[in-house]
Amino acid sequence: MATKEDVRKLAALARIAIADAELDAFTKDFDSILTYVGQLDALELPHAGATRPAVRNVMREDGTPHETGKYTERLVAQFPQKDGDYLEVKQIIAHD
């Protein structure tokens, strides 16, 4: 059973705020989904995690990059706050 407190905690981890008014409905939905996917629990499977999963991360090899600055203007244009070509965010370390 998922509790409202669980949902609130998960939301905080995911950087999402769930309003109190929505919390009941959210918890109810969350619970019914967990009950549904919980059927996996009853499955007899070759011990989960014992075999190397076939799904793995694939990274491409480093190759010739595009010329420096090709996309800068277009990317900077989308920054919500900027100082020249610098992305501006709130100060997170105090000086005092």
Binding site: A11, F30, V37, L40, L43, L45, P53
Partner: peptide, 27 residues
């Protein structure tokens, strides 16, 4: 939001074996 929360849950310590790794094995 629902799916982000669900994903955060199934990957969280204490649940990853019961959900994510089990699902991966079923796959």
């Amino acid at each position: 939001k629902r799916r982000i929360l669900l994903g955060t849950f199934v990957l969280s310590s204490g649940y990853i074996d019961a959900y994510y790794r089990k699902a991966d094995a079923a796959r």
